[in-house]
């Protein structure tokens, strides 16, 4: 049934209204970030270069990026062997693992922080005061999303046959996981890594309440002294995250196209 003319016009108008609601704040942020300080007329890119010049902000960016990297590495090192092992040897535990992995999604992050606060005073006591110790909390935080990505691609391959074939050719469990299973689920792992980076770069609750200087915390602090520069940094981080997430949707579309029969 083809839509009528009046419906099309109404649709176009409504879509424009929604587009305005979603894009005006972003444009406003861009406009604000190119303003000269103190509302003087004129445009400047100073605020955009500020994030490379300012010592505090730069160190927080480095900390956030390192944190993202460590979280991804630890997440993969924990999740992939566990999930492969559960799928091959103890299928009964699958429900339990799934429940545990999805739990952080239902509990508000704030509540986790309140509970984890005491644990962290010990962690910082043992491992030092660097922001990188947040990795442990972030791995828990990204579990639900990465679990789903990896689980989807793991159920698309025949892990049992692959591992039995590798085992009968004399491969150890390490070789099976790293050299046989992992290349086969690289799409899912990449997707999990993308969404983890996106989440870690935007995470504010843990970092601010446990008093670590990551990028969002530094931005919020910077906003009070130099608004436009904070806006520029916020917009830059947002663009990076959107690029990652859009890349993720294209990645998953490619995967679906390659094996259309797979149910994920």
């Amino acid at each position: 049934m083809t839509p009528s003319r009046s419906f099309r016009i109404a649709r176009a108008v409504l879509l424009l209204v929604f587009a305005a609601y979603f894009f005006v704040p972003l444009l406003a942020m861009f406009d604000f970030s190119t303003q000269v300080r103190g509302s003087a007329p004129g445009r400047t890119w100073d605020n955009w270069t500020f994030m490379f010049r300012d010592e505090d902000l730069r160190s927080s960016i480095v900390a956030s990026l390192l944190l993202a990297l460590l979280t991804v590495v630890l997440m993969i090192a924990l999740l992939v062997p566990t999930m492969v092992w559960v799928r091959l040897r103890v299928p009964r535990a699958k429900k339990l693992i799934e429940f545990l992995c999805l739990l952080p999604l239902t509990i508000p992050a704030l509540v986790i922080v309140v509970g984890i606060g005491n644990v962290y005073s010990w962690v910082t006591y043992l491992l030092g005061d660097s922001a990188l110790v947040l990795t442990f909390a972030y791995v828990v935080l990204v579990l639900p999303y990465s679990f789903r990505a990896i689980d989807a691609s793991l159920s698309a391959i025949d892990a049992t046959t692959l591992s039995e074939a590798a085992r009968s050719l004399g491969a150890g469990w390490f070789t099976v996981v790293v050299r046989v299973i992992m290349p086969n689920i690289s799409g899912g792992i990449l997707g999990a890594a993308f969404i983890s980076v996106a989440l870690v770069l935007g995470e504010y609750v843990f970092a601010s309440l446990l008093r670590f200087d990551t990028l969002p915390v530094a931005m919020a602090a910077l906003y009070k002294s130099n608004g436009p520069a904070a806006m520029a940094a916020a917009l830059a981080s947002m663009l990076l995250v959107s690029a990652l997430l859009v890349g993720l949707t294209f990645l998953s579309r490619d995967r679906h196209r390659r094996n259309p029969g797979a149910s994920s």
Binding site: P25, A198, Y223, M231, A234, L235, S237
Partner: peptide, 11 residues
């Protein structure tokens, strides 16, 4: 997915 500090700034 877009919440947090950046969203507050935008508004």
């Amino acid at each position: 997915q877009f919440g947090g500090v950046v969203l507050a700034f935008a508004w």
